[in-house]
Amino acid sequence: MQAPSSTAGNAIVRIGNRQALRDPLWLRCALIGVAVGFIVLFLCLPLGLVLYQAFAKGWQAYFQALSEPDTVAALRLTLIVALATVPLNTIFGIAAAWAITRFEFPGKSLLTTLIDLPFSVSPVISGLIFVLLFGSQGWFGPWLSAHQIKIMFATPGIILVTVFVTFPFVARELIPLMQEMGNEEEEAALSLGAGGWKTFFLITLPNIKWALLYGVLLCNARAMGEFGAVSVVSGHIRGLTDTLPLHVEVSYNDYDAVGAFASASILAGLAVVTLVLKSFLEWKAR
């Protein structure tokens, strides 16, 4: 028999040490090799290459690329879009999770399905539907141009598609958690005389804060990183309606590798922060 591993208590190790479940050593090594090789080639390499390309011509070129007016404008627009989108979808996520997990009503499962709908729509189609609504030939197009309101090829259009694309993120993280939590604690607080808001802020919010934070972070990452839907409605006006991902595209197509990857490095950094926080939350939940 194998000697018990020093990290006993870990379920995975226990499975590994049960004779009947043990795969031959060569097979284990081969499979681990395949898995690690795949992850290194397909996931680590791209992530590392973003940094390598961004700093290929040194720190100075990197910061110079980032301080170019078009890059700064793109970064500012990206932040504005995220600042408008994330709070809206966060409030929605909390309200939807509260209604769905704390009450019984007919059509609940249909509502849950509809909330997930934007996930199954191609980014390009997400952009297209807003063109059909607000474009010059769209439903509201003539009315909007008569009143001098610009939605397409302007910031409002970009915000609208981003809200659509990131719609389910917060609700999706909260609904399963609040379902599992049950509402005994909230009922106790309410029956002891606490008001609705007080109960929410003192009981519910502390219980869901990590999942809420993760949902907000995912929503934010996608809001800052959305490409397909935004590129359909943005019109690609440099320094005006280019978000950071669109700026990556424009710089790349201009053969400005440092510029493209400098902007990309900000977005990649955001992705890494999201992944680290996710691991942290999973570790905390354990």
């Binding site: 996931l43 800052m224 790349y252």
Partner: peptide, 25 residues
């Protein structure tokens, strides 16, 4: 742990970044 966390990278990395970096590789 680190490798497992990396699996989610394609969810978190903006598609345009993935696009240019894969094209470069």
């Amino acid at each position: 742990r680190v490798l497992d966390a990396l699996i989610d990278l394609p969810f978190a990395l903006p598609t345009a970044v993935a696009g240019v970096v894969l094209a470069t590789i």
